[in-house]
């Protein structure tokens, strides 16, 4: 800062207001109109309150979104498991049906005899 700027700084030094300034401001407050209900209501929408409200809304939406998403995934998993079970049952049914068909074709008149597999026997054991 050069000498000119120093002089300018000195020239623009702060000055005290006339005596009794604060008292006159306080006196003006007495006669000044009070803030109305709309202004008080508007105070709720000032930045910090608004910021908090927006933050709360975003947090709530995120929470709801995550819950919805996880429930959706669970439902999809359950549906996939049900479909797999149904497919397995259908395949089993088809196989059994094919076996039954073959059995009928081989001996249509013969009574159905269930042949159970022989139990395992230890070697050297007599029949």
């Amino acid at each position: 800062m050069n000498r000119f700027e120093d002089e300018l700084k000195e020239a623009l030094k702060r000055r005290e207001p006339p005596p009794g300034f604060a008292e006159r401001v306080m006196a003006r407050l007495e006669t000044a109109p009070r803030p109305g209900p709309w202004r008080r209501l508007a105070a709720w929408f000032r930045p910090p309150v608004l910021r908090f409200a927006v933050f709360a809304c975003i947090a709530l939406l995120l929470f709801a979104g995550v819950r919805y998403e996880s429930r959706g995934r669970e439902r999809l998993r359950a549906e996939a498991a049900r479909d797999q079970a149904m497919l397995a049952l259908r395949i089993t049914f088809d196989k059994l049906e094919a076996v039954r068909e073959k059995l009928y074709q081989a001996a249509p008149a013969a009574p159905l005899r269930v042949v159970l597999p022989e139990p395992h026997r230890a070697e050297g054991e007599k029949k």
Partner: peptide, 28 residues
Amino acid sequence: IVRRHQSMVFSIAYHYLQDRSAAEEAAQ
């Protein structure tokens, strides 16, 4: 608050307006 900052507010208005009564009114 008024007492603490009155000289700052008044001086801005005074140096701008160059009129003490107008500056006081603006500061108030």
